[in-house]
């Protein structure tokens, strides 16, 4: 199931000749490449980020792990445009950006649904053209078809995050930022959300940054895991395990986890 048909016909390959994802078996992704150029961020005398340089190719799923106060959320807020770097620059899709971007969407720890809007009103919160149809399609995509007219108050924690995910998807983001969105969910719901996120990412190929303190979650979902410690990237490790990943099958995953945990 795909979220929305691309306006481009399938046979048109002239536009994709320049992209680096030539081995991409699915339709051309809409993900944007992302770069941080020696980014620092200080709050008063406190240096939270001390020169972070990072290159994320389009469509990559990156997880950032680290202790609280390590600067994870600060990185996310800088990319989202909710905060500006003290020095250095954020480059999205080849352009230095400053402030909020329509191509970047953020999923918060709490779903942050408007309690006075129905589910569909929340998904289509930015309104825009044909928002009802787009929102309905997105809700179907996250498995909440038929719940359009419910109030957020009657939804469970997992359903609320699904609505938030649908809200992020309707604008077809180039970059999706996930700020520990599964942290407050119970273990089973969390696994469901992992599967859903992975599927939506595979279908839509947005560049994804997941902030988490759960190393297992990072290894289960990401192409690449970064460990952020005291404002530096302490470890940058690719996870080339086959998908879908099952925790107990691959002994390599335990080895990777041990390596990451040592650095956190």
């Amino acid at each position: 199931m795909t979220l929305l048909p691309l306006s481009k016909p399938q046979g048109d390959d002239t536009a994709t000749t320049m992209t680096e994802t030539t081995d991409e078996p699915r339709r051309g992704g809409i993900g944007l490449p992302l770069r941080l150029d020696s980014v620092t961020r200080s709050f008063g005398s406190l240096k939270v980020l001390k020169g972070v340089t990072l290159d994320i190719p389009r469509g990559q799923f990156v997880a950032i792990v680290g202790r609280s106060g390590g600067g994870k959320t600060t990185i996310l807020r800088l990319v989202a445009g909710l905060d500006l770097p003290t020095s250095g620059s954020v480059v999205i899709g080849g352009e230095v950006v400053c402030g909020l971007q329509p191509s970047v969407r953020l999923l918060f720890q709490d779903a942050r649904l408007l309690p006075w809007q129905t589910v569909i009103g929340n998904v289509g919160v930015a309104r825009g053209k044909d928002w009802k149809e787009t929102a309905r399609a997105a809700l179907e995509d996250v498995g909440l078809a038929g719940r359009e007219n419910d109030w957020p108050a009657v939804l469970s924690g997992g359903q609320r995050q699904r609505v938030a995910l649908a809200r992020a998807l309707v604008s077809r983001p180039g970059v999706l930022l996930l700020d520990e969105p599964f942290g407050a969910l119970d273990a089973l719901t969390r696994l469901e959300m992992h599967k859903l996120t992975e599927r939506l990412w595979q279908e839509n190929r947005f560049t994804t940054i997941l902030i988490t303190h759960d190393v297992a979650e990072a290894v289960a979902l990401a192409d690449r895991v970064l460990v952020l410690r005291e404002g530096h990237i302490a470890l940058d490790i690719p996870i080339d395990l086959p998908r879908p990943r099952r925790e107990h099958i691959d002994p390599k995953s335990a080895e990777i986890k041990a390596r990451i945990l040592k650095e956190v």
């Binding site: 989202a80 969407r105 942050r112 809007q117 930015a126």
Partner: peptide, 28 residues
């Protein structure tokens, strides 16, 4: 809720839509 205002900004609501759909109902 400041979080809702922040969300609305990230999701591209202009000042008028922000007032009409977030601030006013929140204060109602």
């Amino acid at each position: 809720d400041k979080g809702l205002i922040e969300m609305a900004k990230v999701y591209g609501l202009g000042p008028f839509a922000l007032f009409r759909r977030v601030i006013l109902p929140g204060a109602m």
